[in-house]
C-alpha cells in the first residue's frame, strides 16, 4: 500500500466543502478519521484522504479555489487490513 495524503482541516464544515469541491472536479478523495499521528496538527476528527495519484490535482484545485485548510500531511502505509486491531 502506497503513501497516503491527508488534507487536515479546522472543522467538518471546512472538510465537507473540500470533499464536495474535489468530487465536483472528479478528483478521488475520501472522508477519513484524522489519523492519531496527525491529531496534534488538526483539531478536527475528520480529514480528507487522498491517494497518491490525486495529490497534484487536488493541490492545484485547492489553490485555484482558494480553499481553506490547515495543511496536507502524509503517512506511509497507514492501512493494514489484516492487522486485526479492532476497537
Amino acid at each position: 500500500m502506497a503513501k497516503k495524503f491527508y488534507i487536515l482541516v479546522e472543522n467538518n464544515t471546512q472538510g465537507m466543502a473540500i470533499h464536495h469541491l474535489l468530487d465536483e472536479k472528479g478528483i478521488e478523495n475520501h472522508i477519513s478519521p484524522t489519523p492519531r499521528l496527525l491529531t496534534d496538527e488538526a483539531p478536527c476528527g475528520m480529514s480528507i484522504l487522498l491517494p497518491h495519484a490525486s495529490l497534484e490535482m487536488a493541490q492545484a484545485c485547492l489553490n485555484e479555489n482558494e480553499a481553506k485548510y490547515i495543511k496536507i500531511a502524509s503517512l506511509d502505509d497507514p492501512f493494514e487490513p489484516k492487522r486485526d486491531r479492532y476497537m
Partner: peptide
C-alpha cells in the same frame, strides 16, 4: 485513539467502494 486505524484498516483500505459511502465515512469519523 483506536478509531482512525480501525476505520482505516477495515474500510478505507478497500478499493472501488461506492462513492455514496462518504456519508457513513463522515458519520463514523465523527
Amino acid at each position: 485513539q483506536v478509531l482512525p486505524s480501525a476505520v482505516g484498516d477495515v474500510f478505507l483500505s478497500q478499493e472501488n467502494r461506492p462513492k455514496s459511502m462518504d456519508f457513513w465515512d463522515l458519520v463514523i469519523s465523527e
